[in-house]
Amino acid sequence: MTTQTTDIPPTPTDERRSWLREHSELGVCVLLLALGALVLTDALTMDVDITQRGPVGPKTVPVVVGIGLLVIAALLAVDVLRGGHGQAETGEDIDLSEPADWRTVLLLTGVFLGAAVLIEPLGFPIAGALLFWGAAFALGSRRVDRDPLIAGVLSLATYALFNNLLGVPLPGGPLMGVM
């Protein structure tokens, strides 16, 4: 991200907002800090009543990891404030020149959660097909004739492969009950 230049003199709130946007990586530090605090609290409130051999009990490693998280959160904050930036990952289908498309990410997350809720009442074949179709829709595919067909075939084939061939049970749901 580069510094923004505007012709209009920025108001203090604008300035603060753009500063925050540029330093959004500080959010990672906050998360690491919170995680470190969580791990430490959990470790220190652990009541170890078993007599242990050696200096390293079940608490030791969590305490070390927790302290490590706190230290790294601080170091990362210093790095970010000094102008350091994590390099966003690139790839074949990734175009970093455009701003992030949060709608698609939220839609995908919603579709995934929906499928998770539906897998037990509706069974894997239906919930899986809905997951595929929904995800393809979220990613911009609008072929109403082709998308559900591919989703259904993929889901049924996967169900058969895992449930019948590999012996990994998946819930069949009402659809398999009928068949």
Binding site: D93, L108, V111, F112, L113, A115, A116, V117, I119, E120, F124, G128, L131, F132, W133, A135, A136, F137, L139, G140, S141, I150, L154, S155, T158, F162, V168, P169, L170, P171
Partner: peptide
């Protein structure tokens, strides 16, 4: 088509996580 590719990845990821123990919480 990229929508199919990434929808497929989500789909198989869900299959894999659910196959671990048949628990919805694993998907979450």
């Amino acid at each position: 088509p990229r929508p199919y590719l990434y929808a497929g990845i989500m789909f198989f990821a869900a299959v894999g996580a659910y196959a671990v123990g048949g628990e919805v919480i694993d998907l979450v």
